[in-house]
Measured scan of single mutants.
Amino acid sequence: PTIVLKVSPEELKALEKAGVEIEKIEKNEDGELYITLTPEALKKAGFE
């Protein structure tokens, strides 16, 4: 199962800087950012 999270541009930068593997980055028509994370990326980021 993949996880989709709504993030701010600042959060996205912080995640990328931390080396979190982001599978997909999407922006909706309201300009909101959503990222898709794999279970492996979540484990690496410390989420179980």
Rank of each mutant, 00 (worst) to 15 (best):
L42H: 15
D30F: 14
I22H: 02
L12T: 01
K43A: 15
E29S: 12
V20R: 01
K6Y: 07
S8H: 06
G31E: 06
G19M: 06
L15N: 00
E23V: 11
T36Q: 06
P39M: 15
L42F: 15
L42P: 02
E21W: 08
D30L: 11
K44T: 03
P9Q: 10
K44S: 02
K24G: 07
L42I: 14
E40R: 02
E32C: 11
L5R: 15
V20F: 04
G31R: 02
L33E: 02
I25Q: 04
I22P: 04
K27Y: 13
G46S: 02
I22S: 01
K17P: 00
A14Q: 14
K13E: 13
N28M: 09
E26C: 15
L5S: 02
L42V: 14
G19E: 06
L33W: 12
I25W: 06
P1A: 10
P39A: 14
E32L: 11
K27E: 11
V4N: 06
P9F: 08
Y34E: 09
A45N: 04
A41K: 02
P39C: 15
A45W: 04
P39N: 14
E32D: 13
E29I: 09
P1G: 13
D30E: 12
L12G: 01
K6S: 06
S8L: 07
T36V: 05
E16G: 05
G19V: 02
V4R: 14
K24F: 09
G19P: 01
P9L: 09
V4T: 11
I3P: 02
E40S: 05
A18Y: 13
E48K: 01
K24L: 08
G46A: 02
L5Q: 07
E29N: 11
D30M: 12
K44H: 03
L37T: 14
T38N: 04
N28R: 12
I22Y: 07
K17V: 11
K24R: 13
I3Y: 11
V7F: 02
L37P: 00
L5Y: 06
F47C: 15
S8C: 11
K24N: 11
L5W: 07
E10A: 12
G46K: 03
G46H: 03
I3Q: 07
F47T: 10
L12V: 05
V20A: 08
E32A: 08
D30S: 11
K6T: 05
K6P: 03
E26P: 01
P39Y: 15
G19W: 03
E10N: 10
A14C: 15
P9Y: 09
P9A: 13
P1E: 10
E32Y: 11
T38L: 04
G19K: 07
I25C: 10
K24Y: 07
K44C: 05
Y34D: 02
N28D: 12
L15F: 06
K44Q: 02
A18R: 15
I25F: 05
I25Y: 06
V7C: 05
E23I: 11
K43R: 14
N28W: 07
L5V: 14
G19F: 05
N28V: 05
E29P: 09
K27T: 13
G31H: 03
L37H: 00
L5M: 14
A41M: 14
F47D: 10
G31D: 08
P1Y: 12
E16F: 12
P9S: 11
G46D: 10
L15P: 00
P1Q: 12
G31L: 04
I3E: 04
K43C: 08
E23A: 09
L5E: 01
I25V: 09
S8E: 04
G31T: 02
K43M: 14
N28F: 07
I3C: 15
L15V: 04
A41S: 07
L37E: 00
L42T: 07
K13S: 10
E48S: 02
I35F: 01
G31V: 01
E23C: 11
P39R: 14
E16V: 12
L15R: 00
K17M: 10
E40W: 01
Y34W: 14
I35Y: 00
V7W: 01
P39K: 15
K17Q: 11
K13G: 09
V20M: 04
D30R: 13
E21G: 06
L12D: 00
T2I: 09
A45C: 11
K24M: 10
P9C: 11
P9W: 12
L5F: 06
K6R: 10
F47P: 05
E10T: 12
L12K: 02
E11D: 13
E23Y: 07
I3D: 02
E40L: 03
K27N: 07
D30T: 12
A41Y: 03
L12F: 09
E40K: 04
E26H: 11
K17A: 12
E23D: 07
T2G: 09
K24Q: 08
K6F: 08
E10C: 15
L33Y: 14
E21T: 07
A18E: 05
L12R: 02
T2H: 14
T2Q: 09
L42W: 13
E32H: 14
I25N: 01
K13A: 12
E16I: 11
E10S: 11
K24I: 09
L37N: 00
E32M: 11
E32T: 13
D30Q: 12
E11H: 13
